[in-house]
Structure formats: C-alpha cells, structure tokens
Write a protein that binds this DNA or RNA. Structure first.
Lengths: 207, 207
DNA sequence: CGGCGCATCAACCGATCGGTTGACCCCTGG
DNA sequence: CCAGGGGTCAACCGATCGGTTGATGCGCCG
C-alpha cells in the first residue's frame, strides 16, 4: 500500500513516517508541505492513498488540493487527516472528493484501520466526526437562508442595525426580525456571538 | 539533554520522538497528552526541557500547564511548540513563564537549535513570531495590552460586559474603560467590529 | 386549496452598550 | 522625584440592541 503525505508541519510528517513504518503493509512513497508540491509529487509517485491536512499555510489549501488530486487520471483515495472537526471543513472536504476524515488526535490504531479502509474505497470518519454528523442530521432548522447569510456578513463587518437596513434596502424592524431568527438557529443570544459562531461553522468568511 | 513532550496528538509526539532520535545530544524521557498527566510525568522524570503544545484538548490548557510546571521546585525550561502565532497565545505563554515559542511548521533544524538554546535558558522565537513582535514594537499606540487581549477574547465568545466582568473579577465599569481603549486602538466603534478587526490582525484566534 | 417557510414591516419596553468625566493605585523610567 | 502608562472603579446619559406581539404578502408543495 503506497502512501503520500501532505502536511505543512515537518514534525507531523516525521510522525506519520515513524508511525506508519511499524506497519508492514504500508509504505510512504512521498510527502509534500504545500498544495502545488503535493500535486506534482502525487502525479509522479502514483500512491494508493493520500493523507491530506486541510491547513497548508500557503495559498492553495487542502480542500482545493484534494479537488485537484481527485481530478487526476486514475486518482488515489484522499484521506483527510486534520486537527479540527468543523461542519464546514467536513462538508467541503467530502464535496472535494475526500474518502474519509480523521483527526490528528485519534489513536494510531484508528489511523491504521482508517488508511486500510480508505485504500478499499470505504468511507471512514473519526468517531467524534461521525457524532457531529449524526447530530446535524437530527437537528434540522439550523440551515440559514440566503437573506440571513447576507445579514450575517454585514453583521460581521461591524454594521449596526440601521446600517444593515440601509445597505439591504429594508427597515430596521426587518433586520431585527432576521436577527432573532439567526440567533435561534445558531443558538446564541448576541450579535457578537452570532458572528463568531458563523465564522466557526464557516457560514461566512472574514475579509 | 533530557526532553519531555506534551501534545494531545499521538502523531505529533511520534514525530518529535523520531526527529529528536537523530540528535545524539537529546533524549526523550517522557511524554504526555494532557496537562495533569504532564505535571505528574515532569515531576517524576525531571527533564531539562519541556516541549509544550498550547491546545491540549482536555480541561487544563498548555498555558496553565506551563505556569504550574514553572512553579515546580527547580523547574525545567518550557519551550512552547504550537501551530499558531497569535499575539494572545504568545503573550500568555510568555507570561506563564515559557522560555521560547516555536511553530510546528518550522524546519527541524530550527527546532533542534531552539531546544539547545532553551536548555541554556536563552529565549528563542520562531522567525515569524519574532517578526510580529518587532512590528508590534515599532508601532506603539496600536499594541494592545495583555489585559485588553483578554477582554477581546471574551468579547469574541459573545460575552456581555457583565459576563466579562464576572470572568475577570473586575467591575463592568472597568470593562467599559478597556473597551473604549480597544475601540480606539483598533479604529472601530462597536464590539462586533472589534472582534473581526482583532481576528483579521491575528490578535486573537476564534475557538 | 391550505398549510408552511421566508421576507417584510410596526410599535413597544427593558436591558445593554457607547461615551464621557473624573478619580485612585501601582509600577517603571527619565 | 514625578511624569507616564496600565489597571481599576464610579456615575451619568443617550443610543442601540434584544425580545415580544402581531400583521401582510409571497412562493412552494402535497
């Protein structure tokens, strides 16, 4: 089983090499610190599974790299191995064609089994990640409308209700109504908390 | 040189062991995934240098662990080795008694030299971290105090003034005074705008 | 057709926030 | 020594925000 590592931390790459060296059925055939380097290396070495971090430091991130890797002819499986377990990270990774999503904090044995499962094309999720997905499924009504996202973005820019109303050509009353709905869906009570909650879930992105 | 590792990621610990194994003058005498475990291990093994991550997953974080380690009789040097380079993390780590602050993304050679420097009691900073500090020095009036950063972090969590006051053991009046200063330094007029400005300038990091 | 969710608006009230002025303490450095 | 900066607190005021109730119109879907 040929593996390729993509992570901007030399320490993490060394750790994976060391850990995987103990498994007789796995071999690390290449590694990369950034997206561009990864694409070149993967095209050249043709691994079976790519272990991909999402935060790569330089311009092109892990999600975009995953998308391009999966667009290669006869692409390898891509197993995301990252630090965080936000909904948006997971969704975007899956959308980009990732085969699985594991956390760096997971025990090594879970990592080994995950890699073998990914090589067989099976979807593999860390226990904590799977738990989050289940909870999302069971709690509908948390999806924000397009209008509500518009409000959130102006909110994040620090605009007051009057300013938001002016920019969207509606009245303050309407803005307040939207805000109440947003607070409810995000489970917060203040505008500031709404902004941070939205950023964490990658509903909006700070400029 | 006896080293002790504190990091909640098995992969990272394995990576450090593998990397440091190549250096003849270093020896990893113990490791821990969490704060409590670290304190017990360090007291027992008496290392020269502790490599400390700031995100430990469980209740007690790296900063608090560092503070307690430095409070031990004849404490080891603590070298923070983490992923981020926000002002908040750096300032709190230094305040807690850390000898240095390196990033996991740094090249291994910088890590080795940093450990040797830390063992001699010298302060060592990653190049990117040092750059940030220099810029802070050269632009006074825009630099937030440690206390102001504390306020900002609670602000970002969506806390109201009363909640901030309660958590920091001060009165609402004091919180408001700090906020006025923060608004002035960041060039904003509302708490929400202050949070986004602070995140953009990497003064704080969203949870 | 009759709900249902979304978007819009109004009026009201209490709570909170933004801004100001003034004050005290502690520490550091010229 | 004392000026300066940071941290703390108080009292006050107007502006804004959070929360509520109620209402209208639109499009979708069974």
């Amino acid at each position: 089983m040929r593996l390729f590592l993509v992570d901007d931390h030399p320490v993490v790459r060394a750790g994976l090499v060391a850990l995987l060296g103990g498994e007789t059925d796995m071999e690390v055939v290449g590694e990369a610190a950034g997206g561009e380097e990864a694409l070149r290396g993967i095209a050249a070495r043709e691994p079976d599974v790519v272990l991909m971090d999402l935060q790569l430091g330089d311009g092109i991130d892990g999600v975009e790299t995953t998308r391009r890797v999966r667009a290669l002819p006869s692409p390898p499986q891509v197993l995301v191995l990252t630090t965080y377990e936000t909904d948006a990270d997971l969704m975007r990774a899956v959308d980009a064609g990732a085969t699985g999503y594991l956390l760096k904090a997971c025990p090594p044995e879970e990592l080994f089994q995950g890699i073998r499962a990914a090589a067989r094309g099976e979807t593999v999720l860390s226990a904590r990640v799977a738990t989050r997905m289940m909870r999302r499924m069971r709690e509908p009504g948390t999806a924000l409308s397009a209008r509500e996202v518009e409000i959130l973005e102006l909110l994040a820019s620090g605009a007051g209700n009057r300013e938001i109303a002016r920019r969207l050509f509606i009245t303050e009353a309407t803005v307040k109504t939207h805000l109440v709905h947003i607070y409810g869906k995000l489970g917060v009570e203040t505008r500031t908390a709404a902004v941070t909650a939205a950023v964490e879930r990658r509903l909006i992105r700070l400029p």
